[in-house]
């Protein structure tokens, strides 16, 4: 059984069809790259996969269950999502923002400290823990939000252009984390404009155009 299934999914907002009758599936442990021009519906598709938008038609299933029937806490345990640009939280410290990755998900948190130590090491944010978010550069902020997303420990992680504000070092950190995640049997789906990365490392590449997966 596929981990995530999209069955004839469409999304209509403000009179515009962002996603049009998409049927696709992702298995556990796969890396899916979603590529396509600006405005083609990639972010909307990712939001539907994350259960953050309600499809106008069709259904999204996670582990065979309708995403729309899952509670937010349960959903946050099963899937993590990071948007294209994450605003605000300026006055919170990095440690406080990271803590949100585990605070609201369902289930036990006995290994919370070791999970925190691990993602802090992977995303190299050890020296930033007490800093307020407004003091960080765009790339540092993005690494903090990636670490927060990883902390959810979800089976599928959905990332919308996670590399857009990262420098070469940051991209290398991100790619290493994604590889490690997939190697551990977790699934990652990400929107990117880096076709080289998509073609060389992804198990599936979905080319999106006008709300449809035209190649995939």
């Amino acid at each position: 059984m596929a981990l995530l299934e999209l069955k004839g999914v469409s999304l209509l907002t403000s009179g515009v069809e962002r996603v049009a009758s998409v049927t696709a599936s992702v298995d556990a442990g796969q890396l899916v790259a979603i590529v396509g021009p600006n405005g083609s519906g990639k972010s909307s598709l990712l939001g539907l996969m994350a259960g953050l938008f309600t499809p106008t038609r069709g259904s999204v299933l996670l582990n065979g269950r309708l995403v729309s029937n899952m509670g937010l806490r349960e959903l946050a345990t099963e899937r993590a999502w990071l948007g294209q640009s994450t605003p605000g939280a300026d006055n919170f410290s990095v440690a406080e923002v990271l803590n949100w990755g585990r605070s609201f998900v369902a289930g036990e948190t006995s290994d919370a400290q070791s999970a925190l130590d691990e993602v802090v090491r992977v995303f190299e944010v050890q020296d930033l823990m007490t800093a307020r978010m407004y003091r960080l550069s765009g790339g540092q902020r993005q690494r903090v939000h990636l670490a927060r997303t990883w902390l959810q420990g979800a089976r599928i992680t959905l990332l919308d252009e996670p590399d857009s504000s990262l420098d070469e070092t940051g991209r290398s950190i991100l790619r290493g984390a994604v590889q490690e995640c997939v190697r551990a049997g977790r699934t990652v789906a990400l929107v990117t404009h880096d076709r080289g990365w998509a073609m060389s490392e992804a198990d599936l590449v979905w080319e999106v155009c006008a709300g449809r997966i035209v190649v995939g």
Binding site: G47, A50, L52, L72, R73, L75, A76, T77, A80, W81, L82, G83, T86, P87, G88, A89, D90, F92, W100, G101, S103, F104, V105, A106, Q152
Partner: peptide
């Protein structure tokens, strides 16, 4: 403070 969509993604 991260926005309502990001908060929902965190389980709030």
């Amino acid at each position: 403070s991260l926005g309502s969509v990001a908060a929902r993604a965190l389980g709030v």
